[in-house]
Amino acid sequence: MAGTPLHDRKVSVGSYIALAFAIVFFSGFMKSAEWYGVFDFTTLNGSFGKVVYAVKDTAEGIQASTYTMRGKGGSGARDGFIFAFTLIPTVMFALAMIEVLEHYGALNAARKLLSPLLKPLMGIPGDTGLALIASLQSTDAGASMTRGLIDEGKLKEKEADVFTMFQFSAGATIVNFFSSGAILFTLTNTDGSAAVPASIGLCLIVMFVLKIFGANMMRLYLTMAEKKQANTGVHGEAA
């Protein structure tokens, strides 16, 4: 996945507005057929038209049965291709919206809000904020920036391992989720209602919280390994 170059830009009021908009837009709060549905990703993503697949002559006249353009009963590579084809607009729309929100500095605002929290949350320095935000968009950008921080001496070995764990679980979370997972929310039941009873926002929150949890498990593991090493060291001397 090509990385968006992140610059250490100034964070303006507009950036915070963009971040707030991003949260509302992908949270599903505004999902509606009313006018405020304009602030919701799934609503604006819309739906495909239906096609007729069978016509029946009934007492009330001719009735047509419709289904999505993907059709019924397909399987294998061909069905996979047609299905994948129906995903393309969702991926394009999601990435386009992220590009626009990023243009207004949404992720930069997130970096500014997150940086002071990194020490209490994961025990890593606030300097890593930029690399952290980059890693949500591109694993390659995140990994190379982390390498840079280590080389500059801004990250100690343990901090680097904890931060790497954060990046490794659900790597490039935003781009990866919007380029495939988001399409799960476009699936419908046979009656046309949305099939998945969760929102994109909920999934992103769960992933983000667990990324931090995983990093802390790593932190705990490393601390315990350090202690064990220190203990065996002492015993070794005593023996």
Binding site: M1, F85, V91, A96, E99
Partner: peptide, 14 residues
């Protein structure tokens, strides 16, 4: 952004 999405969709998703 939509172009980026197209590239990801065609080279990765499909």
């Amino acid at each position: 952004g939509a172009r980026k999405g197209w590239n990801i969709a065609v080279t990765s998703t499909v």
